[in-house]
Structures are given as structure tokens and as C-alpha cells.
Design a protein around this nucleic acid. Structure first.
Lengths: 372, 372
DNA sequence: ATGAAAGCGCTAACAT
DNA sequence: ATGTTAGCGCTTTCAT
């Protein structure tokens, strides 16, 4: 009987008592049970080396594994191999319907690779992001996907330069050594602007996101580009900045627009939530959409088509974005650090016209001061 | 200079070359840098033991940590302490707007406890659930929250009996030794039934979920209970079973109901998605809601209030459910296995009446065969 | 085909 | 207050 000497001489503080009692079985336990050396068990259990073990021995090992309910201890393997088989996912707000599909996309790819994912929600707070990244790194994640990146995100850049594969999704940092997958916004915003212009709109307001967000910056830039192209009215007075992509902020911005007195016949919002909030305020002020104002959004979240009126917006495919990000990540994980190249994929985004846009009511401009 | 003997004698297969080059610094590295023993560094870095180290030494250690960019190796600590500081979360479909808030609730509590969470999506597939649980366990999770549990979920029961704290959320298993947090459905379904009955409905159909799901079973049971109480028509012909909580299934079930020819003036669906699908089909068949049929849902997902007509349903608080589940879990994690007691919390759920319910159009019953 | 042994990076009991 | 030491459970060379 080749019982291991290390066994049975101590009671662990966390286990009840006695040898191998109340404790998870280890390789040694199954080895003892089968009567082989524990390294043999290790080999038999690793698909890459299993062929080197006699069928008969392997069968007995598998039986013992089942009987003892043995489970691989990944922490120990990680310590030994420096491979944790886990990645990290960080989102700004998991409650936002945009991120569910992104996570699902990532999850589907990473489970194909035998990886699991740690999840973290930053609540749109850069400090939480930093803390999450730091704990994730301590856990030995082999790669990181960040959906909450700011344009200047030092932590994200630091991780990239530290050699941990990282890709931003649905956003990107200015530092283009960090891989990213986002959407091709210029043409889609262009479609929106041209659609509005063809309808006859010349004074098109824009509710932007915070300029520190890449999505906000690029959507605004695209707006500016196309407004000029289309010979509509270019004016900073038509642009107002929200602090977050939330309905409340959309409402606040719409109020601000109305209060400022700038005339406008349409408002483009940097995302759907902002558009919903704006729509509410506009309606509350007696402006009917699309008769009196046209409104557009971005993302085409499920609610957009159910809103009243159904929202003209830009459709995006977050599931696919999540998959694309994960694919880039795993390609990098498999590569030696020095052969990794930053990649930037731009997924298509396409306008979907619904009922929140129409020709402006003959010549009449909105936006006379309503109070103050 | 007290360089450690173990250092500098080998090149790791995974690092580029030379001693301490290209490799993450360890406690030994910072110890060498400061000129103390690595166990001193360990103590200085652990808040629980940091007070035993001289301020001056601790300061130098912290400086070295920053300079070398040292990071705690949780895998090593886990191996040593048997505490991974991670939990697992398993959801049936992260794309469903119900689960974002649940995850956020869990995440908020677990980060308070210094824990991080692994996430897994089962796609409503019990085999995937089993696989996920198994990989999570191998990763040494200290607790598990499952939102995808079936009523008879052997794997979930097995985990519970194996001693890993586990709680089901938004669902529960029949085995009541597994802690759960779900909603108090009986009164809320009661409110719906009474509301419909007061409106004058006597033939109320029910679109159920699969009977293997606890949510489906308890909502159907509540429906049966109250239908009888309220002296409405009790008949199995009024009940139809979906295979999943999806719009398509709601549509299919509504078709089935219409095709069967049973008269009904209202349909209660086991959840909002089912209700939406049913609503669409009913409308497509020329039935106007609420004039010709009343429809109700369950969950009050964000879209419910935007649907046309806005849906009468039952409001539930998934964020709170997530928090409650996590609180139970962490209480258990802190307890010795033998003092853990299963807990079952029922969160309030309340009817919200919107515009999909009204009095039935005078005496006329729906549901004459429409085809086949 | 299998056994022996070393060591991944850490914590904690035990010295001093 | 700090140093010494012994593993945690595993993978992987090196023997046999």
C-alpha cells in the first residue's frame, strides 16, 4: 500500500478532522485509490498526455475520479503553468441592454476556447474600472475586454503596454496600440443627416455624450462632418452635451436646447436613451414628433422600435461586436507578446428609418424660449 | 546584498531570458529590492498583519511594490489558503433584460466583500449549466448563484450537498435545502386575476412556461388557485404551454389557443415576452387589445410600459433580488458548513395596471376557430 | 509506461 | 519586529 507520507499527519484548519476527511480529493487521493503515482493520474487526466497511459490504468483512474468526485484544482495548475484560462470583461453598466449581447458574444467565444470570464460593472466610474482591472490582473486573467474605456484611459493603456492582451469593445481609447472593435459610425450618421436633409431639415440639433467618450466624440464628429457636407446650419449653439447616456440626461439636454432659444426642427441624439429623454421633454412642451420635431437615436436597442413614435436610429450588432472582440483577444492570447499587433475592427452600422422623422412642418422653426 | 539563491539560475520557458526579466515580480523580488525577507513583505501587504511591520519598512515595501509594479498572485494565495475570493453567477440568457439588474445586484454586494464573480450563460441548456458549474468549481469558487435552475436540478442539488454555498435567484429548485430568492407570486397573480374578474372576464386563458421551471409552475398554480376562488371558468383547455419565455413562443401559444376554438376574453401570460408575442398574434387576427381581448404579463421589463398598448403586468425588482441572493450567499460563505441553514426569501411583486386590460366587449366570446 | 523530484508564489506557524 | 520553514496541488523534466 503506497499511502503517501504527507497524508494523514495533520488536520487542516479548514477541514473537520482526520486524514482526507471533509476535504476535496487531490491527485494524490485518486492515485492512492488506484495504486499509481500521482503524476500518472495527472497525465491520464490531461488530454494532451492521456495517450501515454495504458488504457487499463486510465480506465481505473477515471473510475476513481468519478468515485471520489475528484475535481481539478485550477489554482494549483495556474500557479504551475502561469495559465489561468480566464479572461476579464468590464462593462460600464450591465443594466444597459447594449451590454448583455456583448457579454453573450464574448462568452460564446471564450467557452469555445475553454476559458471562463470574470465580470465587472464599473457604474461608469473610472476609479471602479481601475480597481476592477487591478483585481482581475491579480487573478491572473490572460486577457481583458473593456467596454467602459474612456478616450484617455491610462489604466487600459498601461495594461496593454504591460503585455496583457486587451481589447476595447463598443468604444476605444485614443491610444491606438490598444485593439478595439466598434462601429463604422461615419456612414451611418451620414445616412441619418442626409435623410433629415432630404426631408427638408436645415437646423438639426445634436445631443452629444461626454467628449471624453470615444463613442460621443466620433458621433459628434460625424455629425459635424455631414452637417457641413449637406449644407445644413453649422452652429455650436445646436450642440448640447450630456453627462451620461441616460434618459434623464436626454431630457435635461432637450430642456437646455429649448431654453436657449435656438431654432431647430430636428434633434439627433448620440444614443437611443438620450433620444427617448429628449422626446419626452419635447412632447411635454407641446411639440409633437415627427410633426413638429424629428428625433433620431443610435444603437437601436429593443425599445426603439416600440417607442412612440418608433424611433429612427442606427442599428448596431452588439452580439457580433462581442464575438469579434473575443476573437481578437484569443488570437492575441495564443501569440507570443512580441508578435501581437493591435487590430481595429469597424463593424457595419446601418440607419433604420421609423416614425420619429418626417418633413418639418412648413417653414416653422422650433425653439423659441419657453421660460426663464 | 541578499539576493535570493533561487533567483537567476533558470530561464522559464515562458519568459524571454535572464533572471527576473520579462516576468511578473513576486514577493521575493520586492523583498530583495527592499532588503527584507519575503515573508515580511507578505505581512506588510496584508491589511490584517500590516500593523506588525515597522512604519519605515512598510513604507519602503510600498515604494518597491509601486516601483516594480508588483501584483498579488491570487492563484498562489488560493492554493495556500483555500480561499479564492470568487463566486460564480449562472444565468439562462444574459440578453434577457431581467438578468442585467440581477447581476448588477450580485456584483455590488460581492465587490463590497472583496469578491469577484465568474459569469456564465447557459442558453437555457441544462448541459451547459452542468459544464459551467463544473468549471467554476474547478476554479475554486466559494459560492454560486444560479438564475437558471430547473425545478429538478440535480447538479444544483449536488453542489449544495457537496458543501459549496449556493443560492438560486428568480427561480428555485424543488429540493428546499437549496436557498433561494424569488417573488411572492401568489398575491400578485391574485391581483391580476381579481382585476380581470372585476372587469367582467370569466374565461381567462393562461400561457404557461415549461412545467419544469419553477417560475412557470408557481405562476400557473397561482392562476389555478385564483381562477377557482374568483369563480371564473376552470378548464385545462384554457391553458397552453410554451417551451421558453420568448415572444415567438407566446405567438405560437396564442395561435394554438385561437385554433383550438375555446372561447376566452382575456389571456394571462407567464411573462411579458410571452404576452408580447401573444398580443401580436391576437392583433394579427383582428382582435384589438384591450377592446376585444385583455392581456397581462409578468416581470414588468422596461419595454412593457412602452408596448402598445402598455402592458398590465406584475412588477418585480431584479436588482434587489440579486442583492438579496448575494447577501444570503456571503452570510453562508462566512459560516462553517455545519451551521448553514437554507433560506428562502420571497420578494414582493405587485400588479401594475396599464392599458392592455379592460372590460370584455359585451358578452361576446373570442376564439372561434380561425383556420384548419 | 510510470515513478521521482522540483518548484510555481504564497501564507502562517514557529522560531528568534 | 522580522526571519525560517513547510507545504497548498499541480505540471513537467528527468530517470527508470
Amino acid at each position: 500500500m503506497q499511502m503517501d507520507r504527507a497524508e494523514g499527519e495533520r488536520k487542516d484548519f479548514w477541514q473537520l478532522t482526520g486524514p482526507t476527511k471533509g476535504k476535496r480529493p487531490t491527485l494524490k487521493d485518486v492515485a492512492a485509490h488506484v495504486g499509481v503515482h500521482f503524476s500518472t493520474v495527472s497525465r491520464a487526466l490531461d488530454p494532451a498526455t492521456a495517450h501515454r497511459i495504458t488504457d487499463e490504468v486510465r480506465a481505473r483512474i477515471q473510475a476513481a475520479v468519478a468515485e471520489l468526485n475528484y475535481r481539478h484544482n485550477v489554482a494549483a495548475a495556474t500557479l504551475r503553468t502561469h495559465s489561468s484560462k480566464t479572461i476579464g470583461i468590464i462593462v460600464p453598466d450591465i443594466t444597459n441592454s447594449l451590454f448583455g449581447p456583448i457579454i453573450k458574444g464574448i462568452d460564446s467565444i471564450s467557452s469555445e476556447h475553454g476559458y471562463v470570464a470574470l465580470i465587472g460593472d464599473t457604474d461608469n466610474n473610472p476609479e471602479k474600472e481601475e480597481k476592477l482591472i487591478s483585481t482581475f490582473l491579480a487573478r491572473g486573467i490572460e486577457g481583458l475586454i473593456v467596454a467602459s474605456a474612456l478616450r484617455e484611459d491610462e489604466v487600459v493603456s498601461a495594461v496593454a503596454h504591460d503585455g496583457t492582451p486587451i481589447v476595447t469593445v463598443n468604444s476605444h481609447v485614443d491610444d491606438d496600440s490598444v485593439s478595439s472593435v466598434s462601429y463604422n459610425v461615419r456612414p451611418s450618421i451620414g445616412a441619418l443627416v442626409k435623410h433629415l436633409a432630404e426631408l427638408g431639415h436645415r437646423r438639426i440639433a445634436f445631443i452629444s455624450g461626454p467628449s471624453s467618450w470615444s463613442t460621443a466624440e466620433e458621433r459628434l464628429a460625424a455629425y459635424r462632418y455631414w452637417i457641413d457636407r449637406v449644407k445644413a446650419v453649422v452652429s455650436d449653439d445646436l450642440i448640447v452635451y450630456s453627462n451620461e447616456y441616460r434618459e434623464e440626461e436626454g431630457a435635461r439636454c432637450a430642456e437646455e436646447l429649448l431654453r436657449s432659444g435656438v431654432p431647430f426642427t430636428a434633434v439627433m441624439a448620440a444614443n437611443d436613451l438620450l433620444a427617448f429623454g429628449a422626446l419626452n421633454v419635447l412632447q411635454r412642451h407641446g411639440l409633437e414628433c415627427p410633426r413638429d420635431v424629428s428625433v433620431t437615436g443610435f444603437n437601436d436597442i429593443p425599445m426603439a422600435e416600440r417607442w412612440s413614435p418608433p424611433l429612427t436610429t442606427v442599428k448596431v450588432d452588439p452580439l457580433r461586436a462581442g464575438k469579434a472582440a473575443a476573437e481578437i483577444l484569443f488570437a492575441d492570447i495564443k501569440l507570443a507578446p512580441e508578435e501581437r499587433q493591435p487590430k481595429h475592427v469597424l463593424l457595419p452600422a446601418s440607419m433604420v428609418v421609423r416614425h420619429s422623422t418626417a418633413a418639418p412642418s412648413s417653414g416653422q422653426l422650433r425653439g423659441a424660449p419657453t421660460n426663464g
